[in-house]
């Protein structure tokens, strides 16, 4: 069976794509699973958190996704990405499990958005050579409506055996719901061309605050999230991981604690990112809760893959 491929994607920034990507990587790596994180965002946030010395902050000569996708227009015999990809995959920093590998992004990756060459399938092609070496492949996509990098990521996420999926993180806000709408539209477009079998692995409610004053509005957005229906892909409620939030919050918020697959907003998440350590290494109850949630999500998605 091939690797579990998940593309974390939303057109909106700040909805938790990188948090979910690296959270899943940390949990899977902690279990000894072989993980590859592919950073398609030119801000390279995931790569930095994973401790990779990308050109801007460490090694100017390190090979990145940009080098894999780039083809010199004057080169009559372009390098096959299946030959080159091994040079672009690096171990995560020493704080991370030794089974986690990273195909990092870098700032110059933004040049690829305007690349006139047919580069959209180079990542997918390159992964053919190494996908068998991994149990989980995570794609951290940039918050953009399609474009070359999103297309390259989603095309690669489909995988050769099909069944790769898009995991859509959504904050319970207007932005979060807009991001889901737009991400679903992109998935449908990809199915019409590059990735006919690309699926929606799920919608993850992320960065859900514990702020009491915000609970009412978040509950309203949660209700909407479960009520919307996509004419092609079906009810959103079937795509959202977990049950709806209780209609009325308890004053302590304990009722929400029973809702599974809900990635809550905890300061420890930002602290772990700042320290460039996996959430699995972070101390405290909040870190444990996050690890448990990422673990639940990973288990669910692995189970679904097995059952397919």
């Amino acid at each position: 069976m091939g690797a579990l491929r998940l593309a974390e994607y939303s057109e909106k920034g700040g909805v938790g794509k990188t948090s979910v990507t690296n959270g899943l990587a940390a949990v899977a790596g902690d279990r000894g699973m072989r993980v590859l994180v592919i950073d398609l965002d030119s801000r390279a946030t995931a790569s930095k958190e994973l401790g990779v010395p990308i050109p801007e902050i460490g090694d100017p000569e390190i090979f990145t996704l940009n080098d894999l996708l780039y083809v010199n227009p004057g080169d009559d015999d372009p390098l096959d990405p299946t030959d080159a990809i091994a040079d672009t995959i690096h171990p995560a920093g020493e704080s991370w499990p030794s089974t986690v590998r990273v195909l990092p992004g870098e700032r110059k990756l933004a040049n690829r958005e305007a690349d006139s060459g047919p580069i959209e399938m180079r990542l997918r092609q390159g992964l053919r050579a190494v996908a068998g070496e991994f149990d989980v492949i995570l794609f951290d996509l940039p918050p953009r409506p399609s474009g070359k990098l999103v297309t390259a990521g989603l095309a690669a996420a489909e995988g050769e055996d099909g069944g790769g999926g898009v995991l859509i993180p959504a904050t319970l806000t207007t932005d979060g719901l807009d991001g889901v709408t737009q991400a679903l539209r992109t998935v449908k477009q990809m199915r019409q061309g590059y990735s006919p079998t690309l699926s929606v692995a799920g919608i993850v409610r992320s960065i859900v605050p514990r702020d009491r004053e915000l609970r009412a509005i978040h509950r309203e957005f949660d209700r909407q999230l479960f009520e919307r229906v996509d004419p092609k892909l079906g009810p959103w409620g079937e795509m959202v991981l977990g049950e709806p939030l209780p209609a009325v919050a308890s004053s302590s918020g304990e009722a929400d604690a029973d809702v599974r697959y809900l990635v809550r907003q905890y300061a420890i998440r930002e602290e772990a990112r700042f320290a460039q350590v996996p959430i699995t290494s972070a101390p405290g109850r909040e870190a444990k809760r996050l690890v448990a949630t990422y673990g639940e999500i990973l288990d669910l998605l692995l189970k679904r893959k097995e059952n397919r």
Binding site: R34, E61, F63, D67, L68, L79, D83, A84, A86, D87, T88, I89, S98, T99, R101, A129, V130, G132, E133, F134
Partner: peptide
């Protein structure tokens, strides 16, 4: 871990 991703490393001719 991965024998494959070590295999061929640096010999692909990839350049920045």
């Amino acid at each position: 871990m991965s024998s494959l991703i070590k295999q061929g490393r640096g010999r692909s001719g990839l350049s920045k």
